[in-house]
Design a protein around this nucleic acid. Structure first.
Lengths: 340, 340
DNA sequence: CTGAAAGCGCTTACAG
DNA sequence: CTGAAAGCGCTTACAG
């Protein structure tokens, strides 16, 4: 490399070294439409010799694009690191984003708090668009993002403004129904559920589906305890369920982590799974195979949702505003193991 | 707000609405040095009414500052999410960064791979500086960052170019020595260690300190097995240790996660901790209290390291190049529990 | 304290 | 295919 340490080369220097104008150098840099082979080669060579990389701020200012997208996760650190859902989500989002040649900026914010700070950041156009996941009832993200006019796609439906942002989600109602159906079909008659946090839509839908199916079967759908998507919370909720409904013989837990807690609690109390109490989980991200017995559960279509979310986002960024928001629903797939 | 949805207000509009020049508006926006109270009030008001936030790219281009710093973690997703070290690190770094009013961009990269892509990103000046942690022997980060001239501070020493970047670390040698000393003092005579990955400096230092102390005590320091900082790896390493050195009576594990694995393996083989084999861990990030027995370990000074690292980084960003890199070493503090 | 002007480093019609 | 020029939206000496 020609340049000395520290100073950053500019397009101007590249153009000069290549013996072309800045305009031509810029075109050669960006795909090379209408650039002669000689000019292209000269620019390529100059870039290599100078170790040139375009300045992000200058390029952004001119193109009104940053090439970055944000992943907003309004969740506490503890949950993020304790729940494999996030690891998997981050993993697949990272992969999808790379395929579109975008850079991912992770925007962790405490739920509820700091929304002002976040919106300021977004208004500054540090990113071209955002994916938001694991949002809660109280936040005003959907509304704020819609007003900002920033391309946004939600993984999991927000509670309000659902017609103003794009949404990719899994069919929680369907999963809840299927779970109840499965338990009923295997002979359970006293059903209960460990639902997700009441302020998260995914949990809400799974509960709703479960309720519908149980009611339609002519059974009572009263045995509902909300957990917090953690294992400890699942164990606790299961304990409450057993205390209040001792005759319970079938449980649907809205996440495998909570189901794992339930297995622990059930075992501790001498109830066999599935003989005494059948158990269905949700997520299938690893822990379902590690419990004893392994969990019958639903495969959370995280990979498909992330891929689709990024595709939608990239599309919205490209086409600009005007296009109506879209909503895509993936079915959750039943995975049968030993717990039910 | 006056503006309609979608269009983003500019400084020009703010200035016009406030009845001042762009220069004055800009000054009012940035701390208000040499701005009359009236002008300041007018600008504040205009900002509020327009819902104005400065465009990040334009500001960056003018100031040569982005207000963002990157956290580089060249580690696989699995480890990042399995080891509480990262959760804690992310937590404290996030906190420190906020105190300096910086935005954190998380740069996860597979170890070894993608270094080109990362360097391109950094050369584009998307961030003003970086913190790097959990780096490995093979990578050329220290060298590349030094050549880039980008402010960088390493949490944990790199293997090479240690005089060209700033470093904040914990005293691994000291910890290794203390661990060995403690085991020797309690009467252990057949010592072993479950070391960290051979390509990570932190593990290397802890091993080195342990070796020194054991040798100086006139004992043999041969019982060394490398683990991978995971619980499963710790259990495996412990098994190897027991197979090759059946008489072993004291073990230092370079991380609590590995120590937890060791406890499991020891218990499975009928060895009591600490009666048959005493065990010292490292990290004290929660798991040390959850094992049975709870672990005697060292408090990894992550909070102090992160705070200091960000302070150093912010300082380097402010003062520009020229200042020599700095190196700060924190002592690890022994926490006595029941395992040794 | 204030404003006109230059400049940060790019891209992109436009004319040739 | 190429280049001169304008423009993206800010900040900051400079002169007043």
């Amino acid at each position: 490399m020609v340049r000395s340490e520290g100073e950053t080369p500019t397009l101007d220097q590249v153009a000069r070294l290549a013996g072309v104008s800045k305009a031509t150098a810029s075109r050669a840099l960006n795909g090379g439409a209408r650039v002669s082979p000689q000019a292209q080669a000269a620019v390529d060579d100059a870039v290599r010799r100078l170790g040139y990389t375009p300045n992000a701020a200058a390029r952004s200012l001119a193109t009104r694009r940053t090439g970055s997208v944000g992943l907003i996760v309004p969740e506490s650190d503890e949950r993020i690191f304790a729940d494999p859902f996030f690891a998997q989500m981050l993993h697949v989002v990272t992969r999808s984003v790379k395929a579109h040649d975008l850079q991912l900026v992770l925007l962790l914010t405490q739920p509820g708090k700091e929304e002002q700070r976040l919106m300021r950041y977004l208004r500054g156009r540090f990113v071209d668009g955002v994916i938001v996941t694991s949002h809660h009832r109280g936040d005003r993200l959907a509304e704020n993002l819609a007003e900002l006019g920033l391309p946004a796609v939600f993984i999991g439906s927000p509670w309000t403004n659902t017609d103003r942002v794009s949404i990719v989600e899994s069919d929680g109602i369907g999963a809840g129904r299927q779970a109840a159906r499965l338990l009923i079909d295997r002979g359970c008659r006293a059903l209960g559920t460990i639902a997700g946090p009441a302020d998260m839509h995914a949990g809400h839908d799974r509960l709703e589906g479960w309720r519908q199916e149980v009611s339609e079967a002519g059974l009572v759908a009263d045995a509902v305890v909300h957990g917090d998507f953690t294992e400890a919370g699942g164990a606790r909720a299961c304990g409450v369920l057993l205390d209040e409904f001792p005759g319970i013989d079938g449980i649907f837990a809205a996440s495998d982590l909570m189901a794992a807690g339930a297995v622990r609690e059930l075992t501790a109390r001498g109830r066999r799974v599935p003989e005494d109490v059948a158990l269905v989980g949700y997520d299938d991200l690893g822990v379902a195979e590690q419990t004893d017995p392994p969990l019958t559960t639903f495969r959370n279509p995280i990979g498909a949702m992330a891929t689709e979310a990024i595709r939608l986002l990239a599309q919205r960024i490209d086409e600009g505003p005007g296009e109506p928001p879209r909503r895509i629903v993936f079915a959750a797939e039943l995975v049968r193991r030993a717990s039910a």
